[in-house]
């Protein structure tokens, strides 16, 4: 399973880990039914604490993306809700636009130009 963490992300680590797993599921790198590596393995690979990974996985379970099964570990239940993913990405986009001095209306104009 391929995971990407943003090194400049100011959010708490567990949210970043959750975002990385969510992104992997949303992009189809991890498919429904697929078993995730154990929390300890993910933690070792990402270089974070195992509890941080567990917290991220529990958040994703509550979102309905992952499924915890006794004795079978954690597996992918279904891709995250498209609207939720897009909302999250849009929020990130607006934040980045703000850093460059663009207002949300400017971003909307840009999107209109593109489509």
């Amino acid at each position: 399973m391929l995971l990407t963490l943003d090194l400049n992300d100011p959010r708490p680590l567990h949210e970043q880990v959750a975002a990385a797993v969510r992104q992997a599921v949303a992009s189809g790198v991890a498919t429904p039914g697929q078993r995730l590596p154990s929390a300890r393995e993910l933690a070792a690979a990402l270089g974070v604490n195992a509890n941080t990974v567990l917290r991220a996985l529990r958040d994703l379970r509550d979102e309905g993306v992952l499924e915890f099964r006794r004795g079978r570990g954690v597996s992918v239940l279904r891709p995250p809700d498209g609207r939720q993913v897009l909302l999250r990405r849009s929020r990130e986009l607006l934040e980045e636009a703000g850093r460059y001095g663009y207002r949300p209306e400017d971003v909307i104009e840009m999107i209109k130009e593109l489509s």
Binding site: M1, L2, L3, L5, D6, P37, E41, L46, G47
Partner: peptide, 12 residues
């Protein structure tokens, strides 16, 4: 690979 990102792969 995107700049400023840390990508790992875990499998078994």
């Amino acid at each position: 690979l995107a700049a400023g990102r840390r990508t790992v792969w875990v499998s078994s």
